[in-house]
Measured scan of single mutants.
Amino acid sequence: KPRTPFTTAQLLALERKFRQKQYLSIAERAEFSSSLSLTETQVKIWFQNRRAKAKR
């Protein structure tokens, strides 16, 4: 499955949200993903990867 190329605007929004909160609830994820027109899975995986990156 090819990787999702996120737009610059989407990445900025994701990073901004991540700075506020490293873990999203299911409801927050649903709302946030639709506002960015991404799937919930894409947002979930992005947050997982971003948390892993923050640990390094």
Rank of each mutant, 00 (worst) to 15 (best):
L11Q: 09
T4Y: 09
S35G: 07
R51W: 00
R3D: 15
F32Q: 01
E31G: 07
F47P: 00
N49G: 08
E40P: 05
K53W: 06
E31N: 13
N49P: 00
Q22L: 04
Y23G: 05
I26C: 08
K44I: 10
S33Y: 03
T7E: 03
T4S: 10
F32G: 01
Y23L: 06
R50W: 01
T8I: 11
W46I: 00
P5T: 09
L14V: 05
K53C: 12
P5G: 04
A54C: 13
T4M: 07
Q48T: 06
S37G: 15
W46F: 10
F6Y: 07
T8A: 12
K55S: 12
L36Q: 06
E31K: 04
R51V: 11
P5Q: 13
I26G: 12
F47N: 07
P2V: 12
S35A: 13
S35V: 09
R56H: 09
A9G: 11
P2M: 12
A54F: 04
Q42V: 05
E40M: 00
F47R: 02
W46D: 00
R3L: 11
F6D: 04
I45T: 14
W46V: 00
S25P: 10
K44C: 09
F47H: 02
E28N: 05
Q10K: 04
N49E: 15
F18Y: 09
S37C: 12
Y23D: 12
I26K: 04
T7N: 05
R16S: 15
T41P: 04
S25W: 03
R19E: 15
R19M: 14
L11Y: 09
E31M: 05
L24H: 02
E15T: 03
E31Q: 06
T39Y: 02
E28D: 04
R51G: 05
Q48A: 11
R3I: 14
T41N: 10
S33G: 07
Q48V: 06
S34C: 10
E31S: 04
K21Y: 07
S35C: 08
P5E: 15
R51I: 11
S33A: 07
K21G: 07
E28T: 02
K44W: 02
R50K: 09
L14E: 04
A27L: 10
K21E: 11
T7Y: 03
F6H: 04
E31D: 05
R19I: 12
I45S: 12
K17P: 01
R3P: 13
I45K: 08
N49K: 02
Q10L: 01
L36C: 02
F6R: 01
P2W: 02
K53P: 05
K55F: 07
N49C: 07
A27F: 13
L12S: 13
I45F: 06
R50M: 09
T7S: 11
R19D: 14
E31F: 06
K1W: 08
T39I: 06
R16Q: 10
S34K: 10
